[in-house]
Simulated scan of single mutants.
Amino acid sequence: MSLKHSLLALLVVVIWGANFVIIDAGQEDVPPLLFLALRFLVVCVPALFFIKPPPIGWRNIVAIGATLSLGQFSLLYLALALGMPPGLASLLLQTQVIFSILVAAVVLRERPSRRQFVGVMIGMLGLSIVIVGHSQVAPWLPLVVTLLSALAWAVGNVLTRRSKASSGLSLVVWSGAVVPLPALALSLVVDTPTVVWQALTSLSWVAIASTVYTAVFASLIGYGIWNSLLARHPTSAVVPFTLLVPVVGILTAWLVQAEVPTTAEFIGGAIMLAGLAAAIIQPRRRREPPTKASQENLT
Protein backbone atom coordinates (compact mmCIF):
# COMPACT_ATOMS: atom_id res chain seq x y z
CA MET A 1 0.00 0.00 0.00
CA SER A 2 1.16 3.51 -0.76
CA LEU A 3 1.75 6.03 2.03
CA LYS A 4 -1.43 7.88 1.07
CA HIS A 5 -3.58 4.75 1.31
CA SER A 6 -1.91 3.70 4.57
CA LEU A 7 -2.73 7.10 6.05
CA LEU A 8 -6.34 6.76 4.85
CA ALA A 9 -6.55 3.36 6.58
CA LEU A 10 -5.20 4.92 9.77
CA LEU A 11 -7.77 7.73 9.45
CA VAL A 12 -10.55 5.13 9.38
CA VAL A 13 -9.00 3.41 12.41
CA VAL A 14 -9.08 6.69 14.34
CA ILE A 15 -12.69 7.39 13.28
CA TRP A 16 -13.85 3.92 14.31
CA GLY A 17 -11.79 3.85 17.51
CA ALA A 18 -13.20 7.17 18.76
CA ASN A 19 -16.71 6.06 17.81
CA PHE A 20 -17.25 4.13 21.05
CA VAL A 21 -16.71 7.12 23.34
CA ILE A 22 -18.86 9.30 21.10
CA ILE A 23 -21.72 6.76 21.15
CA ASP A 24 -21.47 6.59 24.92
CA ALA A 25 -21.64 10.38 25.20
CA GLY A 26 -24.62 10.63 22.85
CA GLN A 27 -26.63 8.18 24.95
CA GLU A 28 -26.52 10.39 28.03
CA ASP A 29 -29.85 12.02 27.08
CA VAL A 30 -31.25 9.57 24.50
CA PRO A 31 -32.37 5.94 25.05
CA PRO A 32 -29.99 3.55 23.25
CA LEU A 33 -32.49 2.04 20.78
CA LEU A 34 -33.88 5.46 19.87
CA PHE A 35 -30.34 6.74 19.41
CA LEU A 36 -29.65 3.80 17.11
CA ALA A 37 -32.77 4.56 15.05
CA LEU A 38 -31.65 8.19 14.64
CA ARG A 39 -28.18 7.13 13.53
CA PHE A 40 -29.36 4.84 10.77
CA LEU A 41 -32.06 7.26 9.69
CA VAL A 42 -29.27 9.72 8.92
CA VAL A 43 -27.27 6.94 7.23
CA CYS A 44 -30.14 6.00 4.91
CA VAL A 45 -31.78 9.34 4.15
CA PRO A 46 -31.20 10.74 1.59
CA ALA A 47 -28.66 8.09 0.44
CA LEU A 48 -31.42 5.61 -0.45
CA PHE A 49 -32.62 7.94 -3.20
CA PHE A 50 -29.22 8.09 -4.90
CA ILE A 51 -27.62 4.66 -4.34
CA LYS A 52 -28.93 1.52 -6.03
CA PRO A 53 -29.48 -1.58 -3.87
CA PRO A 54 -26.84 -4.31 -4.15
CA PRO A 55 -27.85 -7.10 -6.59
CA ILE A 56 -28.13 -9.85 -3.96
CA GLY A 57 -31.90 -10.07 -3.47
CA TRP A 58 -34.10 -8.50 -0.82
CA ARG A 59 -34.01 -11.57 1.43
CA ASN A 60 -30.24 -11.32 1.75
CA ILE A 61 -30.34 -7.55 2.27
CA VAL A 62 -32.85 -7.94 5.11
CA ALA A 63 -30.92 -10.84 6.71
CA ILE A 64 -27.64 -8.93 6.58
CA GLY A 65 -29.29 -5.77 7.90
CA ALA A 66 -30.94 -7.69 10.75
CA THR A 67 -27.59 -9.10 11.93
CA LEU A 68 -24.78 -6.87 10.73
CA SER A 69 -26.61 -3.59 11.39
CA LEU A 70 -29.59 -4.02 13.72
CA GLY A 71 -28.28 -6.95 15.76
CA GLN A 72 -24.71 -5.76 16.16
CA PHE A 73 -25.40 -2.12 16.96
CA SER A 74 -28.54 -2.54 19.07
CA LEU A 75 -26.63 -4.92 21.36
CA LEU A 76 -23.57 -2.65 21.41
CA TYR A 77 -25.65 0.41 22.28
CA LEU A 78 -27.47 -1.54 25.01
CA ALA A 79 -24.15 -2.77 26.43
CA LEU A 80 -22.82 0.79 26.64
CA ALA A 81 -26.08 1.94 28.24
CA LEU A 82 -25.75 -0.88 30.80
CA GLY A 83 -22.32 0.42 31.80
CA MET A 84 -19.86 -1.29 29.47
CA PRO A 85 -16.69 0.85 29.36
CA PRO A 86 -16.24 2.16 25.78
CA GLY A 87 -12.55 1.26 25.62
CA LEU A 88 -13.13 -2.32 26.66
CA ALA A 89 -16.11 -2.53 24.28
CA SER A 90 -13.85 -1.58 21.36
CA LEU A 91 -11.56 -4.45 22.33
CA LEU A 92 -14.19 -7.14 22.92
CA LEU A 93 -16.01 -6.31 19.70
CA GLN A 94 -12.95 -7.55 17.80
CA THR A 95 -13.86 -11.07 18.90
CA GLN A 96 -16.03 -10.98 15.79
CA VAL A 97 -12.90 -12.28 14.02
CA ILE A 98 -12.96 -15.42 16.18
CA PHE A 99 -16.72 -15.82 15.85
CA SER A 100 -16.58 -15.27 12.08
CA ILE A 101 -14.09 -18.10 11.64
CA LEU A 102 -16.16 -20.43 13.83
CA VAL A 103 -19.53 -19.56 12.24
CA ALA A 104 -18.05 -19.91 8.73
CA ALA A 105 -16.76 -23.37 9.67
CA VAL A 106 -20.27 -24.45 10.70
CA VAL A 107 -22.39 -22.69 8.08
CA LEU A 108 -20.12 -22.52 5.04
CA ARG A 109 -18.02 -25.61 5.86
CA GLU A 110 -14.90 -23.47 5.56
CA ARG A 111 -12.24 -25.37 7.43
CA PRO A 112 -9.89 -22.97 9.23
CA SER A 113 -6.21 -23.27 8.46
CA ARG A 114 -3.77 -24.39 11.13
CA ARG A 115 -2.62 -20.78 11.58
CA GLN A 116 -6.22 -19.60 12.02
CA PHE A 117 -6.95 -22.37 14.50
CA VAL A 118 -3.93 -21.46 16.60
CA GLY A 119 -4.90 -17.77 16.40
CA VAL A 120 -8.44 -18.55 17.55
CA MET A 121 -7.15 -20.58 20.51
CA ILE A 122 -4.80 -17.77 21.56
CA GLY A 123 -7.58 -15.23 21.11
CA MET A 124 -9.99 -17.25 23.25
CA LEU A 125 -7.34 -17.58 25.96
CA GLY A 126 -6.93 -13.80 26.01
CA LEU A 127 -10.70 -13.34 26.01
CA SER A 128 -11.02 -15.67 29.00
CA ILE A 129 -8.48 -13.60 30.94
CA VAL A 130 -10.38 -10.40 30.08
CA ILE A 131 -13.70 -11.92 31.20
CA VAL A 132 -12.27 -13.17 34.50
CA GLY A 133 -10.55 -9.87 35.21
CA HIS A 134 -13.59 -7.77 34.28
CA SER A 135 -16.06 -9.89 36.27
CA GLN A 136 -14.06 -9.24 39.43
CA VAL A 137 -14.54 -5.46 39.26
CA ALA A 138 -17.74 -4.89 37.23
CA PRO A 139 -21.09 -6.54 36.37
CA TRP A 140 -20.89 -9.35 33.82
CA LEU A 141 -24.14 -8.56 31.93
CA PRO A 142 -22.75 -5.67 29.80
CA LEU A 143 -19.80 -7.88 28.85
CA VAL A 144 -22.08 -10.70 27.72
CA VAL A 145 -24.21 -8.29 25.67
CA THR A 146 -21.04 -6.93 24.01
CA LEU A 147 -19.96 -10.45 23.05
CA LEU A 148 -23.43 -11.11 21.62
CA SER A 149 -22.96 -7.94 19.55
CA ALA A 150 -19.69 -9.37 18.20
CA LEU A 151 -21.48 -12.65 17.43
CA ALA A 152 -24.20 -10.80 15.49
CA TRP A 153 -21.45 -9.02 13.52
CA ALA A 154 -19.84 -12.39 12.75
CA VAL A 155 -23.12 -13.91 11.55
CA GLY A 156 -23.63 -10.86 9.32
CA ASN A 157 -20.13 -11.33 7.91
CA VAL A 158 -20.89 -14.94 7.00
CA LEU A 159 -24.26 -14.02 5.46
CA THR A 160 -22.52 -11.34 3.41
CA ARG A 161 -19.94 -13.84 2.20
CA ARG A 162 -22.57 -16.48 1.39
CA SER A 163 -24.63 -14.01 -0.64
CA LYS A 164 -21.46 -12.99 -2.52
CA ALA A 165 -22.21 -9.37 -1.71
CA SER A 166 -19.51 -6.80 -2.26
CA SER A 167 -18.64 -4.72 0.77
CA GLY A 168 -19.69 -1.56 -1.04
CA LEU A 169 -21.43 1.52 0.25
CA SER A 170 -24.72 0.36 -1.25
CA LEU A 171 -24.79 -2.63 1.12
CA VAL A 172 -24.11 -0.35 4.10
CA VAL A 173 -26.97 1.97 3.14
CA TRP A 174 -29.58 -0.59 2.12
CA SER A 175 -28.89 -3.06 4.93
CA GLY A 176 -28.95 -0.09 7.28
CA ALA A 177 -32.49 0.68 6.11
CA VAL A 178 -33.58 -2.36 8.12
CA VAL A 179 -32.67 -0.61 11.38
CA PRO A 180 -34.72 2.60 12.00
CA LEU A 181 -38.30 1.27 12.23
CA PRO A 182 -37.58 -1.87 14.34
CA ALA A 183 -35.25 0.11 16.61
CA LEU A 184 -37.87 2.83 17.07
CA ALA A 185 -40.59 0.23 17.74
CA LEU A 186 -38.45 -1.51 20.34
CA SER A 187 -37.65 1.81 21.97
CA LEU A 188 -41.35 2.65 22.21
CA VAL A 189 -41.98 -0.68 23.94
CA VAL A 190 -38.94 -0.65 26.24
CA ASP A 191 -38.70 3.07 27.04
CA THR A 192 -42.42 4.03 26.65
CA PRO A 193 -43.73 6.60 24.13
CA THR A 194 -43.53 9.40 26.70
CA VAL A 195 -39.79 8.96 27.21
CA VAL A 196 -39.20 8.66 23.46
CA TRP A 197 -41.16 11.83 22.75
CA GLN A 198 -39.36 13.78 25.49
CA ALA A 199 -35.99 12.64 24.14
CA LEU A 200 -36.87 13.65 20.57
CA THR A 201 -38.16 17.09 21.58
CA SER A 202 -35.18 17.90 23.80
CA LEU A 203 -32.19 16.62 21.86
CA SER A 204 -28.97 18.11 23.21
CA TRP A 205 -26.19 19.34 20.96
CA VAL A 206 -24.09 16.40 22.21
CA ALA A 207 -26.71 13.88 21.03
CA ILE A 208 -27.03 15.64 17.66
CA ALA A 209 -23.26 15.83 17.16
CA SER A 210 -22.87 12.18 18.18
CA THR A 211 -25.59 11.13 15.72
CA VAL A 212 -23.93 13.04 12.89
CA TYR A 213 -20.50 11.60 13.73
CA THR A 214 -21.66 7.98 13.96
CA ALA A 215 -23.77 8.22 10.80
CA VAL A 216 -21.66 10.42 8.52
CA PHE A 217 -18.11 9.74 9.67
CA ALA A 218 -18.19 6.22 11.15
CA SER A 219 -20.68 4.72 8.67
CA LEU A 220 -20.63 6.61 5.36
CA ILE A 221 -17.13 8.12 5.23
CA GLY A 222 -15.44 5.34 7.21
CA TYR A 223 -16.89 2.47 5.20
CA GLY A 224 -16.57 4.45 1.98
CA ILE A 225 -12.81 4.79 2.44
CA TRP A 226 -12.46 1.25 3.77
CA ASN A 227 -14.30 -0.34 0.87
CA SER A 228 -12.28 1.64 -1.66
CA LEU A 229 -9.07 0.37 -0.05
CA LEU A 230 -10.35 -3.22 -0.15
CA ALA A 231 -11.13 -2.74 -3.84
CA ARG A 232 -7.56 -1.61 -4.58
CA HIS A 233 -5.46 -3.82 -2.30
CA PRO A 234 -5.39 -7.42 -1.05
CA THR A 235 -7.53 -8.08 2.01
CA SER A 236 -4.42 -9.20 3.90
CA ALA A 237 -2.92 -5.72 3.44
CA VAL A 238 -6.01 -3.82 4.65
CA VAL A 239 -7.82 -5.87 7.30
CA PRO A 240 -4.92 -6.00 9.83
CA PHE A 241 -5.38 -2.25 10.36
CA THR A 242 -8.59 -3.09 12.29
CA LEU A 243 -6.41 -4.46 15.10
CA LEU A 244 -5.53 -0.84 15.87
CA VAL A 245 -9.19 0.12 16.45
CA PRO A 246 -9.26 -1.09 20.09
CA VAL A 247 -5.92 0.61 20.70
CA VAL A 248 -7.44 3.93 19.60
CA GLY A 249 -10.65 3.13 21.48
CA ILE A 250 -8.84 2.44 24.75
CA LEU A 251 -6.64 5.54 24.39
CA THR A 252 -9.67 7.73 23.60
CA ALA A 253 -11.58 6.36 26.60
CA TRP A 254 -8.54 6.99 28.79
CA LEU A 255 -8.12 10.59 27.60
CA VAL A 256 -11.82 11.52 27.59
CA GLN A 257 -13.33 9.42 30.37
CA ALA A 258 -10.27 8.46 32.44
CA GLU A 259 -11.03 4.78 31.76
CA VAL A 260 -8.02 2.71 32.77
CA PRO A 261 -8.02 -1.04 32.01
CA THR A 262 -7.25 -3.40 34.86
CA THR A 263 -4.07 -5.46 34.74
CA ALA A 264 -6.01 -8.58 33.76
CA GLU A 265 -7.90 -6.70 31.01
CA PHE A 266 -4.64 -5.26 29.68
CA ILE A 267 -2.81 -8.61 29.63
CA GLY A 268 -5.81 -10.51 28.29
CA GLY A 269 -6.43 -7.87 25.64
CA ALA A 270 -2.82 -8.03 24.46
CA ILE A 271 -2.99 -11.82 24.20
CA MET A 272 -6.34 -11.65 22.39
CA LEU A 273 -5.01 -9.14 19.83
CA ALA A 274 -1.95 -11.34 19.29
CA GLY A 275 -4.27 -14.26 18.54
CA LEU A 276 -6.37 -12.18 16.15
CA ALA A 277 -3.21 -11.02 14.39
CA ALA A 278 -2.12 -14.63 13.95
CA ALA A 279 -5.54 -15.49 12.54
CA ILE A 280 -5.90 -12.69 9.98
CA ILE A 281 -2.39 -11.56 9.01
CA GLN A 282 -1.07 -13.73 6.23
CA PRO A 283 2.70 -14.06 5.89
CA ARG A 284 4.15 -12.76 2.69
CA ARG A 285 5.33 -15.39 0.29
CA ARG A 286 8.92 -15.12 -0.76
CA ARG A 287 9.45 -14.87 -4.45
CA GLU A 288 11.29 -17.90 -5.74
CA PRO A 289 14.39 -17.15 -7.80
CA PRO A 290 13.91 -17.83 -11.49
CA THR A 291 15.04 -21.26 -12.61
CA LYS A 292 17.51 -21.79 -15.37
CA ALA A 293 14.74 -23.01 -17.69
CA SER A 294 12.63 -19.89 -17.12
CA GLN A 295 15.67 -17.66 -17.75
CA GLU A 296 16.27 -19.47 -21.04
CA ASN A 297 12.60 -18.95 -22.01
CA LEU A 298 12.94 -15.22 -21.37
CA THR A 299 15.91 -15.09 -23.68
Rank of each mutant, 00 (worst) to 15 (best):
L147G: 03
R39V: 04
W254Y: 13
V238R: 00
I56F: 02
S202I: 13
A215Q: 04
V137P: 06
L243K: 02
S187W: 08
P54Q: 02
F49K: 02
M1D: 14
V12W: 08
Q72F: 09
Q27Y: 08
E288Y: 14
R111W: 14
L70T: 06
E288F: 12
I131V: 10
S6K: 08
F73R: 00
I61S: 02
H134V: 10
R284M: 14
N60E: 14
P290S: 15
L127P: 03
D24F: 12
P193C: 02
L276T: 09
G133K: 00
A264T: 13
I131C: 03
A183Q: 06
L88N: 01
S163H: 04
K164M: 13
P142K: 00
L41K: 05
L10N: 10
K4P: 12
L68A: 10
T211C: 10
P290K: 14
A47K: 05
R161C: 05
A231V: 12
I61R: 01
G123V: 07
I64Y: 07
L68W: 14
T262E: 10
D29T: 13
V120I: 07
A138M: 09
G65A: 03
R287G: 11
A138I: 07
S113R: 07
L75T: 06
P85A: 00
T160R: 03
R161L: 08
Q116S: 02
A293P: 10
S204V: 08
N157S: 01
V256K: 02
R287H: 13
A152R: 03
N157W: 06
F99H: 01
R284L: 15
Q27T: 11
S69M: 15
Q27K: 02
R161S: 09
A138Q: 14
F40V: 05
Q94Y: 09
I122G: 01
L41I: 08
N19Q: 13
F50C: 01
P85C: 00
L68P: 11
N19H: 08
H134F: 13
A231E: 15
P261E: 07
A138T: 10
T146Q: 14
Y213P: 03
I22H: 01
L188V: 06
L8P: 06
R287E: 15
W205N: 08
